[in-house]
């Protein structure tokens, strides 16, 4: 207790000294934050302004909602938003279920646990494109599974470039389960064994312990991980562009086409603003939930 208090730097200081300290803070923060301000905030503001017709490239600038009207009127754009939401939600739910199972089981000691705990992190360092390629060689029509089934006269469904984006979801899940598992295992290993043991001692079965103790206590990690994965997948580009069908396409793919093929920065900016706004709203809701959770725990 005394140590915790001692770790907090002192707050009361003479004014001159405080001013000096603030200057040190600013100098220390300047490189990192300055960089982000210039290379993230400025372009982001430009995107938002451009989505309202300002700062337009190659056209007269004028405030307008026209670009948004264009997005809403265009079925391809609308469908791309819906499709992105669809596979983002699917990926998040499936990944969450799988990583909850994985991280709970990883809390148990078993032979070879160390090897598994290294192996499962491999996808973390695998680029999405590589992941797409590896999964492609397995699940595509000419992939290993299809080849293995052929002699028995069994067909293999179309999973790549299909309408339902199953291939996309599969690769995204493959890629995101380890990310979630890293976060959830860290949270779960932070739960004192005394607590789970107490629950066991009070007659809870392993499943009940998981359901009623582990999951609720991991909730901050669960929500953070889900949010992270959802937002990340929602704006994903490479995997949907490689494994998606011609129609519908992901919002990021539509944006890249606007930029690269048509140089239509305005429309891409409108779509980008929609994506950003959606992420921001989710983040805000998340913070509200977390705040309430923290208040409840206090």
């Amino acid at each position: 207790m005394a140590q915790a208090a001692a770790a907090i730097p002192q707050v009361t200081r003479a004014p001159a000294r405080r001013r000096h300290e603030s200057l040190v803070d600013v100098l220390l923060l300047a490189p990192g934050l300055g960089y982000l301000l210039v290379f993230m905030c400025v372009p982001l503001v430009q995107v938002v302004l451009r989505s309202f017709g300002l700062l337009a490239i190659g056209e007269p600038s004028q405030f307008t909602f026209g670009l948004y009207r264009e997005v809403l009127a265009n079925k391809i754009d609308r469908d791309s938003i819906v499709f992105s939401l669809y596979f983002a939600l699917g990926t998040t739910v499936i990944s969450l279920i799988l990583s909850l199972m994985t991280s709970a089981l990883l809390q148990v000691r078993f032979p070879g646990r160390f090897i598994i705990s290294v192996l499962y992190k491999i996808p973390l360092v695998v680029p999405s494109l590589v992941a797409a390629f590896l999964v492609l060689t397995i699940i595509d029509q000419g992939g290993i599974i299809a080849r293995a089934l052929q002699p028995y006269g069994l067909g293999w469904p179309e999973l790549v470039h299909d309408r339902y984006g199953l291939g996309i979801i599969l690769v995204l899940v493959w890629h995101n389960v380890p990310i979630m598992t890293v976060i959830l295992s860290a949270v779960m290993s932070g739960i004192p064994h005394d607590i789970t043991n107490a629950a066991r001692n009070l007659g809870a079965s392993p499943w009940q312990v998981f359901r009623n103790v582990t999951v609720p206590l991991s909730l901050p990690g669960i929500s953070a991980a889900s949010l992270l994965v959802f937002i990340g997948v929602f704006g994903a580009f490479s995997i949907p562009s490689l494994l998606g069908a011609a129609y519908p396409t992901a919002i990021a793919v539509v944006m890249s086409r606007e930029v690269l093929d048509r140089a239509n920065w305005g429309l891409a900016s409108a779509l980008g603003t929609i994506v950003t706004a959606l992420s921001a709203v989710l983040l805000y809701v998340y913070y509200r939930l977390i705040r309430r959770q923290e208040a409840a725990l206090r």
Partner: peptide, 16 residues
């Protein structure tokens, strides 16, 4: 930048 989709950043930075 961790949260923002890369494509959004790319759109902004690309034109800049």
């Amino acid at each position: 930048p961790i949260i923002l989709p890369g494509i959004v950043l790319a759109t902004g930075l690309g034109s800049m």
